[in-house]
């Protein structure tokens, strides 16, 4: 199945070269979890602060349990804030 992976702020450098708008499409196995994608892209776990699937928050304890579905958007940020 295919998912969209969006990596923002300093995590943008972990996207494959040539990626545009901070995102890329990935072919993954059925049942893949956010944690598996993070490992595949070699993202430092401590930099994966905010993890969203289709905009919904995935708590740290769920990241190696919640399965992604075909067409899902997985978006990840390091610790960020604004105002």
């Amino acid at each position: 199945m295919r998912i969209t992976v969006k990596l923002y702020a300093l995590l943008g450098r972990y996207l494959p070269p040539g990626s545009k708008d901070n995102q890329t499409e990935l072919e993954v196995d059925d049942g893949t979890t956010p944690a598996a994608v993070m490992r595949r892209l070699a993202l430092p776990p401590e930099q994966c602060h905010l993890v969203l699937i289709n905009g919904l928050y995935v708590p740290p304890g769920e990241r190696d349990r919640q399965a992604l579905a075909d067409g899902d958007a997985l978006a990840i940020w390091p610790p960020v804030a604004g105002g």
């Binding site: 923002y8 702020a9 905010l50 969203l52 905009g55 978006a75 960020v80 804030a81 604004g82």
Partner: peptide, 11 residues
């Protein structure tokens, strides 16, 4: 603070 633009849009 601008780092929030994509965060808030995604949510």
């Amino acid at each position: 603070t601008q780092v929030l633009m994509n965060v808030i849009n995604e949510t």
